[in-house]
Write a protein that binds this DNA or RNA. Sequence first.
DNA 1: CAGCACCATCGATCTGCCTGCATATCGGCA
DNA 2: TGCCGATATGCAGGCAGATCGATGGTGCTG
Lengths: 125, 125
Amino acid sequence: MEFVGTALAEMTMPQISPLAGEPIERADAERLAGVLKALADPARLRLLSLIQSAPEGEACVCDLTAPLGLSQPTVSHHLRILTEAGLLEREKRGVWAYYRLVPSAIATIADLLTPPRKRATKKAR
Amino acid sequence: MEFVGTALAEMTMPQISPLAGEPIERADAERLAGVLKALADPARLRLLSLIQSAPEGEACVCDLTAPLGLSQPTVSHHLRILTEAGLLEREKRGVWAYYRLVPSAIATIADLLTPPRKRATKKAR
DNA sequence: CAGCACCATCGATCTGCCTGCATATCGGCA
DNA sequence: TGCCGATATGCAGGCAGATCGATGGTGCTG
C-alpha cells in the first residue's frame, strides 16, 4: 500500500458509500481501506488530534514527538502516512515543517461511512 | 488485538472525538484505532456492503465466499473480526449463521470522526 | 444411523507495518 | 565557509495480520 496519495480525492467524486446502495467494487473498497488504514493507528489518531488542537491548528514535528513519546523519525513517518492519505497537508517554513488538517478530509470519510439516512442514492431496493 | 468486543459501546458514551476539542488520550486512541482497524480492510468493507445490500439485510457465510473470491475460513475469520468490533451481529438459524449490521455502529464511528456540527473550524489562509 | 452441508477453529506461511538507530539533507547563523 | 538544529530517509528487527488447507463440531435429511 504505497501511493494512496490522492485516494481520498478520487473517492469523493463517485458516490461510493459502502453502506448505501449496492455492493462496492473491489477497487473502491481498496481505496477506502487504504485511507482507513492510515487512520487506524493510535499514534496517528493522536497526531491528528494534537495538530487540530494546536494553537493555530498547525504543529511542527518538534512539537509532537514529546507528547507522543515516540522518536522523531517515527513521528515523521506517521506524518508522512497521513499526508499521503490526504488527511494532512505539509508546509515548510524555514527549517520547520508545519502540518495541518485537510479540512474536508475527515468529513469525507465520515460521509462515506454514514448510512444512506436521507442522502438518496438513485435506487432503494 | 483480541477482544475489542465492546470497544465501540464504551466509546460511544464519553465524548471522545479525535477532531473535536482537546487531544485524545492514549487509551481512547487505541480503542478507536481498534475499531477502525476492523474497518480498514477491503475484504471486510465489501463484506459489510454485501450484507447490507442483501435481501433481508442479512447474509450467511455461504453467500459471501463467492462474491469475495476468498476461502470459507478466511471469510469466517473476517466476519469474526467485524463481529468482535461490534459492527456485525451473528444469529445462528439451523446450520446457517446469519450476519447483519449493527445499525448504529457505523454511524457512531462516523460521528466520532465528525467534528461537532461546526465543520468550519479555523480559517484557511 | 449415516452421510452431507455449513461453519468455526487450528496450524502454518507470507506479507506488511511499527519502531528505533544511523545517516543524509536542508536551512539558518556566526 | 563551517557548524548546528530540524526533518526526512534507509535499514533492520520484531510482531501483527491475511490467507489457506485440514480438521472438528453440528444440525438436516435420507
